[in-house]
Design a protein around this nucleic acid. Structure first.
Lengths: 278, 278
DNA sequence: CGACCGGTTGAAGTATATCAAGTACGGTGG
DNA sequence: CCACCGTACTTGATATACTTCAACCGGTCG
């Protein structure tokens, strides 16, 4: 699951700035292999398919991978960097649905249509592997392991959305932020990095949109969590001082009531009475 | 896409109440065929696979299809009835993630693990097609059309979660409910039924959990939308009087401000100023 | 009948949106 | 180099929509 971190380092492309979408040489083979690594697929070594080859696409910070409504041409897998997946309403309000990191699938929302429903932008210099739709289907068909890997990855995306619901639903702003931070920390640790020290790539506004609160409230919530001694904030650098306590706090459902937060940094009150179906 | 409605009627099981999971006869073939219909897959007629056969499972209202944490054994496709997908927090708070109807996939969240993350319960007498995981993979591997059908269906599930985010994020309760109703109406019309008249199968509390507000607020929001002349409510029967106006209203992002609602039933104010990435 | 559940409605407190002002940072151009 | 600008972020004051607690009604089921 995380034998990849070093791998990434070893197969960087030549430093020549030029990037071609049609470069075809031995490197492409590694590219295919890297894709398998990224979605955690182990094919013995069955590269008898010279056709299905992903291509690397590099993006600068702020560059769009694809825009809302764009015709679907490819499936993407994040290789490096962070992406923001969002949509812009008629009135200009921007709703963020996901922050994608290494190994995440992008554009799979369009598997049920022919256009992308959401736009995707790089929040820092980034790169993806792009697999054209025909190649994608061909590969899925000929390599069951890849097919399952894609299923797994898509399922992961769904679980991320479930988590988003968890964050947004029925929860005080500070708890939402706590859940967000815990989730970010988890993602860091699964990719082998330190879970204590986060460097967020998104603005407060992005986080606010993601969590369904105003960006000012995010600011205040950061301050509140810092006040409670759970984290330390310095702009976009967040250090988690007490992960267990933070996780505990994130468990809460609603109304930490400020007082509780100050008193004991855990277990906010429950929100609704429980209802179990027969 | 909807040649299925009549189909469903024609292949009902024998009226004998007994149900066996292992009944194997000619009916099973139809069962496989019905599954293809349900997820909108057209295989010419390639039933040369006697192995992969879904089985029908019938559930009474309130019966669990699977519980949280249950080991994954099958993938399910809703045939009749309505399901609630939810999870129960430690403190007993129940979070609803989806309401599943005919054609929806259930249990695909577990494709990336070996246990179900969410429980699923029938909100009325219902039935699903259950396809065991081995059969599922075998079928996906041997029938590309099925594989793509599954991808489409999973993608649909993701889009439903995106919609859920849309409903919960940055939106006044009445607008959330409006969006919910519009979505329900759309689902009705895509399955060939009347979009004007809804019969909700879930409680106010379920809706509240789904939309991220208290169930009392749902009650009040129903009243408010009715007051505004957009809908007519009688317990769980909801008649949409002006779908266009409701849709218009559902577009809004935040703070309809009650006054606006009363004045003109459309276009609530915007919420945040817009932020477009370079 | 009594208990329970689902739904509605009322009253009170509060967390958060909103508006507004002010700081800090990073880039651009003089 | 510094002035300038725009963006990101912070902090404060106010208004309000929501949660919460509570009482109540109408079913249904045991």
């Amino acid at each position: 699951m995380n034998t990849l971190a070093t791998h990434d380092m070893s197969i960087r492309l030549p430093a020549s700035g030029r990037l071609h979408t049609a470069v075809v040489d031995r490197r492409e083979w590694t590219c295919l292999h890297e894709m398998f690594d990224l979605i955690d697929v182990s094919v013995g070594d069955a590269p008898q398919m010279p056709l299905a080859q992903p291509t690397v696409r590099r993006l600068q910070s702020g560059e769009m991978l694809f825009v809302e409504g764009a015709p679907t041409t490819s499936i993407y897998i994040v290789r490096t960097g962070t992406f923001k997946v969002f949509r812009t309403a008629e009135d200009g309000y921007e709703q963020v649905y996901a922050f994608a990191r290494r190994g995440d699938l992008l554009g799979c929302d369009a598997l049920s249509g022919e256009r992308h429903l959401m736009a995707t932008v790089a929040l820092e210099d980034a790169s993806v592997l792009a697999l054209s739709l025909p190649n994608f289907y061909a590969l899925a068909q000929s390599l069951p392991a890849f097919d399952r890997g894609v299923m797994r990855a898509v399922s992961h995306s769904m679980i991320d959305l479930i988590r988003l619901s968890d964050m947004m639903a029925a929860v005080a702003a500070e708890v939402r932020l706590a859940r967000f931070l815990v989730h970010q920390a988890q993602r860091m640790s699964t990719s082998g990095q330190s879970a204590r020290c986060l460097r967020l790539q998104m603005t407060r506004r992005d986080i606010g949109s993601y969590l369904g609160v105003a960006h000012e409230t995010i600011s205040r919530s950061f301050a509140a969590l810092a006040e409670a001694g759970l984290i330390e904030v310095e702009q976009r650098k967040v250090e988690i001082l007490d992960l267990d306590a933070l996780r505990q706090y994130a468990q809460g459902t609603r109304t930490p009531s400020k007082a509780d937060l100050r008193a004991s940094p855990c277990a906010p009150r429950a929100r609704n009475s429980l209802t179990l179906v027969a």
